[in-house]
Each structure stands twice: as structure tokens, then as C-alpha cells.
Amino acid sequence: MNGKPLTVRCDDGYELRGHIWEPCSLHGQWPCRVVVVVGATGVLASYYHRYAAFLAENGFTAITFDYRGIGQSKEANIKNLQASWYDWGLLDIDAVLHWAIDNISEDLHVVGHSFGGFGVGLAKHGQHVKRLLTVGAQHAHWRDYRPGHRLHFWWRWHILMPGITLWHGYFPGKRLGWLEDLPKGVALNWAKSPRNFPAGAGPLRKVIEEHQASFAAATLAVSATDDPFASENAIVRGLKYYPNSPAIVVQLKPRDLNSPEIGHFALFHSRFRDTFWTGTLQWLRDGINPWA
């Protein structure tokens, strides 16, 4: 099921490409509830289209989008793109949230995957989000990787990735088969992600901390027990940046969803339509934790 193409202009003039799904029963009339799906680093928005279509089938207007430098929002020469995680949060995510409020509804909800679940709190308009569902949300501080994966990930993402990025002027993740290509700034933000995330943001630090303090959405933070990135420490660390957001933490075991494994990416695969996807509706509609 394909959504309608969407273009959103950021405050700095950069245009993001995305899609919007409208429930068929509304015949062109926007519903009172909108869900913005905010993706992981290096993952195309198209990966979330099946889930967005599912949300539309269940009465929500759903929006997906690619960050600057990724997918349909990628410029011809990514080497020339000055973009960072801070730009993705302060400009890209913020622009889409603002557009959703102005053009659809103030009844705003977000589903954020990996960095997307953390980055939404960097956006100024994050203060208008009513409910947030995060899936494996963290900011890739290497000490938070799950034991057994830490050394391998430290070598891949914090030694090899920055070295390759500095050599090429961007991270050629697609050529390596690791993920999509990344702008230099984004790759280096990941590689150097500090224990205290705003560190290194320079003059943006105060703005980011103000946005984090104003973020007050009720949050359901979900991760899988076999997710190598989103360990318990990673989830807890991420939530501490949003002291005014009441949060519930859920660790799902694969057997909870009748699956042999989950990992970091699988929950947006359609095989979880009748388990995880259906459960998310209870949170987004009514604020009920289906895995209490």
C-alpha cells in the first residue's frame, strides 16, 4: 500500500521527501489523530511503509519521511552535505512535526525507531507530542551495547566507520552492505556519541537541553532482550534526557511475540502485524501498555 508523496520544507530551506497515509474511510477528511514514524539512522523510510499503512487501516493518519542525506531526501552529492544528528533532530524531525500539527491535527503521536526515538526529543515541536512509542531507542554510546556485542560494535562503528568516513568524505554504508550511505557529520556523531549526548553540540547545547526539558509526552520505551544495540542501560540512559516525560520501559522476549528472534530491526517487519503492531495500537489510541 503506497502513501501519497509528501514534501516538507525545513527552516533552513532543505526539502524532505516522505509519504502520508490517510484512512480510506475518511474520504479526504483528516482524522483527529496523527502518527509520525521517525526512523533509525541509515534506514530508508520505505522500511516503515507497511507499518504506516497498518496505522492508516486502523484509523490514524501516518507520516513517514527520509532525513536529509538519506533515501528520497538525498542530494546528488552527499559529500557536499553538511548534516549531523543535531540537524536531523532540530531541523528535520522538527519540520515534520510542525507540518503535521499545522496541516492535520494537534493530536500528535510519534513512533520512533532507534535514533528516531531519541531524536524526537531534540525537536522544538516535540513538546506538542502527546504519546511516544520508542523501539530500541538510544544514541549509540558504545558502553551501552549489550555484552557479547560490545567489542565487535566498538570496532565496526567507532573505529572503522569514522576512519572510512574521513577517507571518503561520507560513509559508504550501502557499498559495504551495512546500511544506507550517511553524511559525514551523522556518521561521526554516531562514532563519537558521548555518554552525555549534548556534549560536542557547541552553541546548540543549550537549545537542545531546553527542548529535552520541554518534552513531556507519555513514553512507552520498548526494546527486545536480544537487541544488541538497545540494552537496558541504553534505554535508561536515553530516557534520563527527558525528565518531564513519564516513561514505561518494556523488555520484550522473542517468545512474547511467538518468534525465535527479534533483534534491533525486525519489529517493523509485517510478520509482527498480529502481535507487536496490534499491541502498539493500544498505546497510541488509549495510552495502555499492552505488555504490562
Rank of each mutant, 00 (worst) to 15 (best):
G3P: 00
C10V: 11
G13E: 11
E15V: 14
E15H: 04
G18A: 11
I20K: 04
W21Q: 05
W21S: 02
W21Y: 10
E22A: 05
E22G: 00
L26I: 02
L26R: 11
Q29L: 08
W30M: 00
R33W: 12
T41Q: 08
G42A: 06
G42R: 01
V43L: 10
A45D: 12
Y51P: 02
A53F: 11
A53S: 13
A53V: 01
N58M: 14
N58L: 09
N58Y: 12
A62G: 07
A62R: 03
R68Y: 08
R68F: 10
G71R: 02
S73D: 13
N77T: 14
I78K: 02
K79N: 12
N80V: 06
N80Q: 12
L81N: 09
L81F: 04
W85A: 04
G89L: 07
G89A: 03
L91K: 09
D92L: 14
V96F: 07
W99E: 13
D102E: 15
D102Y: 08
N103I: 14
E106R: 15
D107L: 13
H109R: 14
V110Q: 11
F115D: 12
F115E: 05
G116K: 05
F118W: 10
L122K: 01
A123P: 04
H125W: 10
Q127F: 07
Q127K: 10
R131V: 11
L133N: 04
G136Q: 03
H141R: 00
W142Y: 13
R143A: 13
D144N: 14
Y145I: 07
F153N: 06
H158C: 06
M161S: 05
P162Y: 07
G163V: 07
W167F: 15
W178Y: 12
L179W: 09
E180W: 05
V186E: 09
V186R: 01
N189T: 13
N189M: 12
R195D: 15
N196A: 03
N196S: 08
N196E: 15
P198Y: 12
P198K: 07
G200S: 14
A201M: 11
G202S: 02
G202N: 11
R205F: 12
E209H: 02
E210Y: 08
H211A: 13
Q212N: 09
A213K: 06
A213I: 09
F215C: 03
A216Y: 05
L220A: 12
L220W: 05
A224N: 07
T225E: 15
T225I: 10
D226R: 01
D227Y: 01
D227E: 09
F229A: 13
F229E: 14
E232H: 01
E232Y: 02
N233L: 03
L239S: 03
L239D: 06
K240H: 04
A247G: 01
V249C: 09
K253L: 00
P254N: 06
P254F: 08
R255I: 04
L257R: 00
N258A: 14
E261I: 05
I262H: 01
G263C: 06
H264M: 08
H264S: 07
F268E: 07
H269F: 03
S270M: 01
D274C: 03
D274I: 02
W277P: 02
T278L: 13
G279W: 01
Q282D: 09
W283M: 02
W283I: 05
L284A: 03
D286Y: 10
N289I: 01
